[in-house]
Simulated scan of single mutants.
Amino acid sequence: METDLTYLPPNLPVPTDDGACDHLDGLQIPDIQLAATDGTMLRLRNIPGRLVIYCYPMTGPSHIPLPPGWDEIPGARGCTPQACSFRDHYQELQQLQTTVFGMSTQSPEMQRSERERIHLPFHLLSDEHRHFSEALRLPVHMVDSLILIKRLTLVFENGYIRKHFYPVFPPDKHIDEVLAYLKATAV
C-alpha cells in the first residue's frame, strides 16, 4: 500500500513546546562536517551570512511504509510537505540572501533519493551519526530502533543561532514564519 506523503491527514496531534530548544539561541554552530546530497562533506561553520536549517524526522518514497503509529506522534508527519514548501519558496530565500538546507538523521543515500524525487533545488544534510544534533542537544523522537530529530528550524547568522522555531506545526505552512522572520530582520 502506498501512502501519499504530500498529504497531511486532518486531526494530526499538535506538538507542544516542551522547552527542549530553549537553550539554543546564541549558540555557535558546531564545528562538524556533515554529508550533503551532492556527495561532499560540508562544514556549516564556514558558511557566512544567513543560514536556515530545517530539521525533520524522516522522509522517503511512498512505497516504504511509515513506522507504526507515525500519525499519532505529535509533529512527526509532514516531512515531504515541509520540504516542498521550502522548495517552492527557494527563490524568495535566495533573494533574502539565505542559504537553506534540510537535515535529518537519515543516510545520505536516502536523502539523495528524496532530493531527486521531490526536485529540491538545495541539498539535504545527513546527521546519521548524530554529531550535530547531540552537540546542540536537539530534541529527538525515539521510534522503534530509530533516533529521529524532532521537527525544528534553526536560523544562523555568521555561525550563531539567532532564532529557533520549535515546535513546528503545521509543517507545510512553517515557511511563512521563517520568511516573515527573515524579512523583518533583513539588513
Results as ranks from 00 to 15, higher is better:
I29M: 06
H131G: 15
V168N: 01
Y90L: 05
L44Y: 02
D22Q: 09
D144E: 15
D25T: 15
I118W: 01
A76R: 11
Q91N: 11
A35I: 09
M142V: 15
R137I: 14
T59H: 04
L66S: 12
D22T: 14
P9Y: 00
I73L: 08
P139N: 10
N46G: 05
Q82W: 02
S133D: 12
Y90N: 09
A76W: 01
I47P: 05
L120N: 09
V155S: 08
E157Q: 07
S107Q: 01
A83V: 13
E2S: 00
A20C: 12
E92D: 03
Q97N: 06
P13Y: 00
R162C: 14
N11H: 05
P167V: 01
R115T: 10
E134G: 10
H141T: 12
E128V: 02
R50S: 08
D38H: 06
A184N: 06
E72R: 07
L154K: 12
G69Y: 02
H89N: 08
E72I: 10
S126R: 10
R130L: 15
A76S: 15
Q97T: 10
D127V: 11
L148G: 07
H141V: 08
D4W: 04
T3L: 15
R112E: 14
L96I: 03
T99K: 05
P48N: 03
F156W: 02
L136A: 09
D127Q: 10
R45S: 08
T40I: 01
S62F: 00
E177R: 15
T80P: 12
P68H: 03
G60M: 03
V187Y: 00
L124P: 09
Q97E: 00
P81H: 03
H63E: 14
F132W: 08
V100R: 02
L51F: 05
L5I: 12
E92K: 09
P68T: 05
P13S: 09
V143N: 07
L179V: 14
A186E: 01
T40Y: 01
D71P: 05
P13Q: 04
L44K: 07
